[in-house]
Design a protein around this nucleic acid. Structure first.
Lengths: 186, 186
DNA sequence: TCCAGCATACCAACCGGTCTGTTTCACTAT
DNA sequence: ATAGTGAAACAGACCGGTTGGTATGCTGGA
């Protein structure tokens, strides 16, 4: 794998786990096994340009990963539970979550540049659009699909937050269990 | 108001809005209108001790604020919608949310000290316990109340995250609208 | 006079970022 | 085949500014 790709992949994980500010440049370089020269060669804009590249990369890999799960699922309900299942596996194994979310970055959005904020926005829109498409497949009306996809995204992200706070995967498990009953209603 | 209290109140808002790392010490001092001498006089442990004091303070004010809203509400559903309504007001007026949440801090928990993490954990437990109590009042079973209170907390926090990402209060509005239908089901 | 309650000056460490080399290597003219 | 060349891909010293933190000085009230 070439250096640039390796940089993006490593940095993406770090940013996802701990946010933007909390990841120092030197730590980043060490984790990637590169030097400042390499970083500023590939990303003249420095740390923030790397972040944006990571967000764009996330847009692709996340979309791919989620769509893969969604294609195997028979319903939105199954799909959501499957995604949560993956998160829980991550959490129980590594103690952190490096896939399917980037909430740590979002909470620092106020101090990011506009391009970075745009990339974040695009990412959430993409995720919700995948949910929405599946909901439409399931026979939901357009309006319904919009609000339910938002609701699903929110509760999963919120559940992840609670997991981080409690250092346990139980909140996401609870949410995974509640979702089926919730979907029945809609 | 005495200096120490003023420090805590001002710092709490900043930490809530932007997280721990993203708030610099000098900025903090300036916002509080104090100097380093004052900070380290009242909080020998520095920035982190101040954060912990803020979290403890939040535990009280948040509890008081939420309970106030809950006491006026006829049901958990109404109460949740009222809390969200307050958030939306904050968001539309100030562009940020300084009350009812502290998710920015949580997403940085991994790099905080154990006492700070404990304080975060306690805070979420407190919030959920208020929801739970109201749910029990509404006639929910013990187990049910536990999972629904978690679910409500998660979706609200997640909704807030989406609001930050999209720089709009629409996500929380949507969630506020969906909650009644959701509560019918349970 | 004594001490809580500050203010101020200062510090080493670290931050992200820039700069100036150096190595690697495909390509080419001889 | 080989020496020459230029650009890409780094390496790492260095920079000014900022960070959180400390040590000391001042000051008004008990």
């Amino acid at each position: 794998m070439d250096t640039k790709t390796r940089m993006i992949e490593t940095a993406t994980k770090l940013f996802q786990q701990r946010g933007y500010k909390a990841v120092g440049l030197n730590e980043l370089l060490q984790a990637c096994g590169i030097t400042k020269g390499a970083l500023y060669h590939h990303f003249p804009g420095g740390k923030e340009e790397l972040l944006i590249a990571c967000l764009h990369s996330l847009n692709e890999t996340l979309t791919r990963d989620i769509e893969l799960v969604f294609n195997c699922a028979s319903s939105t309900e199954d799909a959501a539970r499957a995604v949560i299942g993956e998160m829980i596996k991550d959490l129980d194994r590594n103690g952190t979550i490096a896939g399917y979310t980037f909430s740590s970055i979002v909470s620092e959005m106020s101090l990011l540049s506009e391009p970075a904020r745009d990339a974040c926005r695009a990412l959430y829109e993409k995720i919700q659009s995948i949910y929405r498409a599946k909901l439409l497949e399931d026979g939901f009306s357009s309006d319904r699909a919009t609000s339910v996809s938002l609701f699903l995204t929110a509760s999963i992200e919120g559940g992840l937050l609670l997991c981080r706070a409690q250092n346990s995967s139980i909140p996401l498990q609870t949410i995974s269990n509640v979702i089926p009953e919730l979907m029945k209603e809609f």
